[in-house]
Structure formats: structure tokens, C-alpha cells
């Protein structure tokens, strides 16, 4: 999807000749990003937006080269931009037109014929969760709705890849989760690969298959999130009690142990500290079949399944400086 080779970008400072160098936004960055959802994480000024502009062919690299979808950014900018979607980090929506009008226009700007532009706009706005409000002027939208319109205009021409610059910016926790879920679906349901930036490592852990961390324009780490989570996936299961099984959790625990599933200690889950944690069973998921066994067991016992979710290890832990230092700078995961 994206490959860069010692990509560098320097901005000249306002101070002329004497001061050499200027700001180095990207410093010999080499990356190889495959299909899927990739997070690009870095603090403010790390060079995330600069990277995206270079990938769109809008800003020439000072050194090195980059390819997007196998096309060179220096020479095939137009072709790249036809197949790639872009959601900027800043506001970019005119307030006096409706979401529909705006997205139709942007679809045509991407080369879709008028009828296709209208059809795909209706579809895309529905997919991002905008319904009746899409006929109202954008000026009256909430931040969350505006972010959805920005995402829709990036997706409307069915690109192969979207570059999302801080899509969770300005959203409250609920809006953030919804946006992240939406981004996940862009890949799983729409089949579009995603490069998403954020300055929060934590929020990308559930969303991304792969995370690239840059700092001061330099590559800090590039690794697959599944490397750390898949091996030791923990499944949290919570069930209701019934008349036959006054303690549903205990009954399930017994049945699952019998089925050969490893249950983590402390069934009364005091470690979790969450409300109702006592009723949460933490078990080791070894693969697809674990989910099926749990589902069938719960059904056989006649219990109600309150929730079943995957608990991942936090990437934040993985990337903790000491953890990073402990592991020798391993080859890039992809």
C-alpha cells in the first residue's frame, strides 16, 4: 500500500541563508505498510500531517522516495489522488451547503459521473451514520457529525486507501469510540485500507492492525498490534443468573473448565475493580473455536449472555520506553 525509503522533509526557516537546515519534519523515514488499518502515532509536530501531504503528492520530499499503491508520489500525484481518499485534520466544510450537496460535489471532483456521484453520496452518508440531517446546512452540525461528513467525502469515490488525519480530534469519548468503530469498518466491511494518525497511542490499539510510531520525524517503532495481542488474547464473559443456576458465573466456570478452557484465576475478579467485575470470567482464547464453545456452553446452561469481549493488552505498555529498550530494535513487522 505505502512504501517510503529514507523519506525526508525539511522546511526552510524564515531566517534566510545563515541558518542552515530549518525544521526537519521527516528524517530518513523508511516504512512498508501493507493492507489493513495502520495507525501513525506521534506527538504534535512529529511529522504526521507532513507525511500525509507527501503521500498525496502535494508536497515534494526533500530526500528519499515514497510510493502509494505502487505509484511514485513525485510523478503520479494525479493518479494517486484518484484512488486515495483524504480527510484533513482541520475544518474544511463550507457551512452554508448541505452534506449531500457538498459530498456530491467532492465525488465529482474525484471524477465520478453525476449519477454515480449522487448514488454513492447517499450510500456513503448512510454508512457513516448521517440520515435526515444530511439535507440540512453543515453549519448546524455537531463536531461529531462534521467529522462524519469529512470521512464521507474521503470515502465517496470508493478509494483503495484513505488517509485520515486525526479523525478523532475534538470528539468526546463516545464520539471517539464511534469514529474508531467506523474506521475499523472502513476496512472490514468496505475493504478500504486505512492510514490513520493520532497523537494518542492508546486509542489506536483496538482499531489498527499495525502501528507506526514517529517522533521528531524519526521512526520509533513499527509493529503489528496482533503480535502483542493475539498470542495472549483474553476473553471476558459475563452471564446472568437463572432459577436453575442461581450462580450463573460459577456454573459456567465449571462447565467451561470441563470443556478444557483455561480460566484465569480469581474468579471473583477483584483485580478488575470494575462494577460487576465479580461476575466476569476471564478466559484464555486460543482461537475461533473458543468463542463457539463459550456460546454453546452458555446456551446449554440456559444462561443469558451479558457480554463477551476481547481484552487486549495495551499497546501503551508495549511501547513503554523500558519495554522498547528491552527488546532489541527488531526488523519491521511488514
Amino acid at each position: 500500500m505505502i512504501a517510503t525509503e529514507s523519506l525526508s522533509k525539511r522546511f526552510p526557516t524564515g531566517v534566510p541563508p545563515a541558518k542552515r537546515g530549518g525544521v526537519t519534519a521527516l528524517d530518513r523515514l523508511s516504512l512498508d505498510i501493507g493492507p489493513g488499518v495502520t495507525g501513525l502515532v506521534g506527538a504534535n509536530g512529529a511529522g504526521k500531517s507532513t507525511m500525509i501531504k507527501i503521500l498525496l503528492g502535494l508536497s515534494p520530499a526533500t530526500e528519499g522516495r515514497a510510493e502509494v499503491l505502487g505509484l511514485d508520489v513525485a510523478t503520479s500525484g494525479t493518479a494517486i489522488r484518484e484512488r486515495v481518499g483524504y480527510m484533513p485534520e482541520h475544518d474544511c466544510l463550507p457551512p452554508d451547503v448541505s452534506a449531500t450537496e457538498f459530498v456530491v460535489h467532492m465525488a465529482r471532483m474525484s471524477g465520478l459521473p453525476p449519477t454515480a456521484a449522487r448514488e454513492r453520496t447517499a450510500d456513503t452518508l448512510r454508512h457513516v451514520g448521517l440520515y435526515e440531517e444530511r439535507y440540512r446546512p453543515i453549519g448546524g452540525y455537531s463536531t461529531g457529525m462534521k467529522q462524519r461528513v469529512k470521512l464521507a467525502q474521503a470515502l465517496v469515490h470508493d478509494p483503495k486507501l484513505v488517509l485520515l488525519d486525526e479523525p478523532t480530534n475534538g470528539l468526546d469519548p463516545v464520539g471517539r469510540d464511534e469514529m474508531l468503530g467506523l474506521i475499523r469498518r472502513v476496512h472490514t466491511d468496505f475493504g478500504i485500507s486505512v492510514l490513520v494518525t493520532s497523537h494518542l497511542l492508546g486509542e489506536l490499539e483496538r482499531t489498527c492492525d499495525h502501528v507506526v510510531v514517529i517522533d521528531g520525524g524519526r521512526l520509533l517503532r513499527s509493529s503489528s498490534t496482533s503480535d502483542f495481542t493475539q498470542l495472549t488474547a483474553t476473553l471476558a464473559v459475563e452471564v446472568t443468573d437463572t432459577d436453575t443456576h442461581p450462580d450463573g458465573t460459577a456454573a459456567l466456570r465449571k462447565a467451561l473448565t470441563a470443556a478444557g478452557i483455561a480460566i484465569h484465576g480469581a474468579p471473583e475478579g477483584t483485580a478488575d475493580g470494575l462494577p460487576g467485575a465479580g461476575h466476569v470470567l476471564l478466559l484464555e482464547a486460543t482461537g475461533e473455536e473458543t468463542y463457539d464453545i463459550v456460546r454453546d456452553t452458555v446456551a446449554d446452561l440456559g444462561l443469558g449472555l451479558v457480554r463477551m469481549e476481547q481484552r487486549r493488552h495495551h499497546i501503551a505498555e508495549v511501547f513503554r520506553p523500558e519495554a522498547a529498550a528491552a527488546q532489541p530494535q527488531e526488523a519491521q513487522a511488514r
Binding site: L56, L58, T78, A79, R81, E82, Y86, P88, H90, C92, L93, P94, M106, M109, S110, G111, Q153
Partner: peptide
Amino acid sequence: TVPLYFSRP
């Protein structure tokens, strides 16, 4: 909106 236009072909 201009940057959005330039992200198109």
C-alpha cells in the same frame, strides 16, 4: 476547502 480540492485529481 481549497486543500480538499487539491487532494483530488
